[in-house]
């Protein structure tokens, strides 16, 4: 393996931080959702890198389950977004403040 695993881990960390930043500072709820997908993919990348280095399949199976959960989460979350938009005519997270302290 000519590409050391630390490169993959650094790439994964930077991608995860991009997801965190997007999650924290965007106002549009759909883009916030995309940031969550970015974070999930960053974690998947480091799982597969470790799986390759250790020559073990468990990491890849775990990534498979993460993808299943991401699919379920996206379906339910986007349904919630549609309902919120129908009731409030807005996708701005600053406007959705009913449960805010």
């Amino acid at each position: 393996m000519t590409v050391p695993i630390s490169w993959y881990l650094i790439l994964s960390a930077v991608l995860f931080v991009m997801g965190v930043a997007g999650f924290l500072f965007k106002r549009n709820i759909i883009t916030i959702f995309m940031s969550i997908e970015l974070m999930l993919n960053a974690v998947n990348l480091s799982f597969v890198a470790f799986s390759y280095v250790l020559r073990q399949l468990s990491g890849q199976v775990f990534v498979f389950f993460v993808m299943v959960v991401a699919a379920a989460e996206a379906a339910v979350g986007l349904a919630i977004i549609i309902v919120v938009f129908r009731n409030r005519e807005s996708l701005n997270v600053d406007d959705i403040e009913l449960m805010k302290f």
């Binding site: 500072f25 965007k26 106002r27 549009n28 759909i30 959702f33 995309m34 996206a74 379906a75 986007l78 977004i81 549609i82 938009f85 807005s90 996708l91 701005n92 997270v93 600053d94």
Partner: peptide, 23 residues
């Protein structure tokens, strides 16, 4: 799925507003 939802909701006015929150 994302693109379908973007198509279903109206984002024109959201794109004209500020993109980043105050903090």
């Amino acid at each position: 799925l994302f693109l379908f939802v973007i198509m279903l909701v109206n984002l024109d006015q959201a794109a004209r507003q500020r993109q980043f929150n105050r903090q």
